[in-house]
Simulated scan of single mutants.
Amino acid sequence: MNAPVTNAMAADFVLPQELEAHEPPEERGLARDGVRLLVSRGGTGEIGHHRFADLPGLLSPGDLLVVNDSATLPAAVRLDRLAVHFSTEREDGTWLVELRRRGEPYRGGAPGEWLPLPGGATLRLLERETPRLWRARLDRDVPAYLRRYGVPIRYSYVDRDWPLSHYQTVFGARPGSAEMPSAGRPFTAELVTRLVTRGIGVVPITLHTGVASPEKDEPPYPERFEVSEATARQVAFTRASGGRVIAVGTTVVRALETAGLAAGEVRAARGWTSHIVTPSAGVKVVNGLITGLHEPRSSHLLMLSAITGGDLLSRSYAEALREGYLWHEFGDLHLIFG
């Protein structure tokens, strides 16, 4: 069952089409770190406006940024009438896939049905995992197949294909995400150097993101993650030293909070997480979050509200709409302090 998102969590706003980012910022004449950055401070209730390149000055020496090092796969394979979106690899070598037709989820298909794919490959549908996703098996190595025949997943607000490089972050080192961990996109090597020079740490986790299908108001399903021993130690050290742990993306929050114990101590962990961060459960590990702007009724708004509170989140989204911030993976960013 979907978790309810209340009005206080900015759930019922209307997103105008002109506030959807239709192309990468580089195609709008901006550097990656030239996108806008909305800043919401939970302690004071203040809301500020910056460029992403201002990030080093908004953090303090001793703070720690935790990033997702998952790289994006060209996870969409197009047929004559359908597209297959490869989402998540399961433990037994099967994959969760979404079938789409004319940009919408395709409700057809049957267990045992097989689909001929480009290059002579065959995809067999096994059973429905969710109302939208199938467990399926491809008779090829999926990552290798996608590298040859796949293209990046895109939705209707992006009106043309862009190279896979536009869907990668500077941190992407471990291929496995169906969709880009987009909160990391505005970082550049130069910006990371400025952060480290200022005494701000940067450490990775891995969480391979599945298909989002933003028109569906669904909670996340299980995704594969890993928090290394080195990252766990650095998180613990930062917290003990009075620094702030800032997650770069909702995927990072999900991984760290899964790895956190009841007292908020993070230990090395790997496997699958179904954890959903809600205001009632709260957050035990992270002190802040860098994220994109999320669609109305998105379950991610529960996580944001858990960090900063529903009232400030609602005011922040009203400010973003009023000031013309851009949504989606090529849009602007939001830095939230708890």
Rank of each mutant, 00 (worst) to 15 (best):
Y157E: 05
G119E: 07
E91T: 11
T169H: 04
F187H: 06
A75C: 09
G93M: 10
M9N: 03
T188R: 11
S182Q: 09
T94L: 05
A306V: 07
V84L: 07
I200N: 11
G271W: 01
G242F: 01
R322M: 07
L117E: 09
D63G: 04
P118E: 08
P214R: 05
H208E: 07
A320F: 13
L73R: 11
G310K: 00
S70D: 06
L65D: 01
E215W: 11
R140L: 03
Y167P: 02
F187Y: 09
W114H: 14
Y155M: 02
V286K: 04
E265L: 08
T88Q: 06
R107T: 14
S274R: 15
G43P: 09
G119N: 11
S316F: 10
V203C: 00
V77R: 01
L79R: 09
V283T: 13
G62W: 03
V248H: 06
R322P: 04
L191H: 13
A8W: 05
D80L: 10
A247G: 03
L326D: 02
L133G: 04
P219H: 07
T278P: 11
G324Q: 09
T273C: 06
L333A: 15
T238K: 06
G243D: 03
S305A: 15
N7F: 12
Y325Q: 07
V266G: 00
F225A: 03
T258C: 03
E98P: 00
T130G: 06
R101D: 08
P74K: 03
G57F: 10
L333T: 15
Y149H: 15
S280L: 14
G260K: 00
E319D: 15
G112L: 02
Y221E: 11
L301P: 05
P116Y: 02
R322Y: 06
D33M: 09
V202D: 07
G260C: 00
V245T: 00
V202I: 13
T44L: 05
A8V: 04
F337E: 00
A263M: 03
D139R: 10
T250H: 13
R101K: 13
P175A: 03
G29R: 01
E223F: 07
T130H: 07
R102F: 09
H22S: 12
V66C: 05
P16Q: 02
I290F: 02
M1W: 14
P175G: 02
F171H: 12
Y167A: 01
